[in-house]
Write a protein that binds this DNA or RNA. Structure first.
Lengths: 222, 222, 222, 222
DNA sequence: GATGAATGAGACTTCATTCAT
DNA sequence: AATGAATGAAGTCTCATTCAT
């Protein structure tokens, strides 16, 4: 095996601590998760933690960065791989939503971080940067999707992005108290409806101009 | 002033502790809020707390009950006061959404409780009861609203209730990290759209049967 | 045995913690002495310590107060018991010096506190109050002594008080590095000299007026 | 510039660490000063520290040696430069006292070391060697001074040396708690008094033998 | 010789909880 | 019922020291 340089070795340590931290924060909560638990989960001592992060909050921030990177990357990929094809785009977005919401830990973790942000102004400011990055990317995803579907948006894409993010976040929190509904499902319904409506609208325009009757309006949900 | 009986006096103490607990849990977080802080906020000592609640979790549960009672009561009132009038119902629901989301502390508190539920099976079971009560009431509110608006639902009312609750919850969490969007606004948009669509659908049906042209489909958002 | 009231019981706890703290600070040093060590020395748990003192520094301050009280009290007694008699006063002061310097722990403790004062402005301000109390009392002791001995002072009594306190403090610190000299001895020498000089001066005055020779000036040290 | 040899380079590192250690011990205290702080102050890493000193205590010892060397050297110079002239000697001693006491850090540092000596027998033994060197040198300074002034000593010069060292040490510790008096001032007073007394004594002897009146005894302090 | 990541003991402090008053 | 002193476990963080690079 190739010997790791010192820098590589430390980067590995950091990565493991971050991974362990994500698990610990999600499982135990930001406040309750102990440095001991986090370090041990990564296979290190408490001291190693403090060699890599000044405080627990510093780790939380790094986790937020990591988490954002992942989501942004996945979003970019979803857009790029669709290559302008609306059907592929729909499928990609649905798959992305399912994949993200399939692991509720991500949203539990986010809830922890957001609650911490509500109490720590410093952390809030730093976390905000990450939030904005994600929000912009999702806004772009939505705008692209709507454009490709040729669907006039209900609201501005950035507002829709907020709504989508809130919905995903909220769903994850409702689950532990017994709510069986799923964000991916809800989103899927909206997407299908939007497409259906787009197609329907075109059809209606045509039928209006020819005087032919169309499908009943009860099939056209919102 | 009339002397309070022993029972009344204790009930008062409980109430104050519950009120203080809501504030403390929202401000400081469930884990970080100390019994001392809660008791002091109610004007009592730690001992008084333990005379009224076995543990911190027992208080959390009582708080959940209280919170649910408030929301259920407000929902019932919103339905009843509409007296079958769709416009009044629309206004009531919008007002309810605004009033609830105006105080983000309620949702911060709920996030705390939901996260705690994710870790404490006992608490989760107990909180679930409360959640179900709210969910049923909101389902009824939605069903009633849709019925009065004569709008065919996108999904089952109970699923819509979950979505609405998730959206409200999610929005509250997004705020501390800088998201400026508002749940009440989002909901309002949906409501208006739904009404618009309902009216439009009726008009379309009519125009179709008479052959008259209708407003362009681009005015029909989703 | 008489049952202790709650207040009495806590006062006892405080006293024991203070006593234990004095020992621990002197033996182990202010920084190194642990709350555990202090509490255990008093027969309590760490928690009991924090029920009585907010921080280690708060204990240090209480110790300073206690220490000052003792010294001030002893000084007052030394003055009062002399009842204006110069010989008794001399003996009292010498005894006081011996008794204080016989227990070097007091000065070790003081050195710890003074060093801490050099680093903690808050503590310095609070300790200063105690220092001033002692200094004033010792100034009074010295002024009284000089007056009764009818010795014109080398400097202002308050400056002499500083010198005496510094000397006592310094001697205690020199001991651990092997200096065998003693503050009490040094002070005794000064006192005897002062008296001797006072007597001598009177004699010289007399001899001058009668023309009788006196003892050689080489017997009159400084 | 000439390349430093390996040995020279290491000597430089040691010197810097010692200088940084003096500052750190004085500023932060022996116990609280961290190796990191010391190394960083010297522009090195912790590793460099441990390449030069086995433990923190080893550095303390080296610092003690350094400090002693400086004082001894200054004392020797003060004696030598006086070249037997009493007035110059007086001035030199006064200047030395002022220069030493002008930087209270030296005495803060010494207090730290002495307190550490009180707790570490090994360190005490080693520090004692340094103390003795200084004490002997100061004893010689005092003896020389008294001889040149032709003043019969109050006590043995070595005892006076202890007193002077204690006084200097004590004064430095009293300062942080607000004592405004100064060792240099105190010493100056003593020196002036001693000289005055020496001159006076000579005059008195003369006046006694001639029957002439002399200055009032109240001008002759002790 | 110098670096600094990692260790692990130990520090101060907080806090849910108990219990005598 | 209410108080609050005391407990003791647990948490965050510091730091002297080691050792591979």
């Amino acid at each position: 095996m190739a010997r790791l340089t010192r820098a590589e070795s430390q980067a590995r340590t950091r990565e493991r601590l971050i991974a362990s931290g994500r698990i610990a924060f999600a499982r135990t909560g930001y406040v309750s998760a102990s440095i001991e638990e986090i370090a041990e989960g990564a296979g290190f001592s408490k001291g190693a933690f403090y060699s890599n992060f000044a405080t627990k909050e510093a780790l939380a921030l790094e986790i937020a960065r990591f988490d954002t990177d992942e989501v942004v990357q996945a979003t970019v990929t979803a857009i790029d791989h669709a290559k302008g094809n609306p059907d592929r785009m729909m499928a990609n977005v649905a798959a992305l939503a399912r994949s993200l919401s399939e692991n509720p830990d991500r949203y539990i973790l986010r809830a922890e971080l957001m609650l911490h942000a509500a109490r720590s102004p410093g952390f809030a400011a730093a976390y905000q940067e990450q939030y904005i990055r994600q929000h912009q990317q999702i806004t772009e995803l939505i705008a692209t999707l709507l454009y490709q579907l040729n669907v006039p948006p209900l609201s501005a894409p950035s507002v829709l992005a907020s709504a989508v993010m809130a919905l995903a976040q909220g769903h994850a929190l409702l689950r532990p108290v017994g709510d069986p509904s799923s964000f991916a499902e809800t989103l899927r319904t909206f997407l299908d409806t939007a497409v259906h409506r787009a197609r329907l609208a075109a059809e209606v325009d045509k039928s209006l101009s020819t005087g032919q009757p169309r499908a009943s309006s009860s099939e056209q949900p919102a």
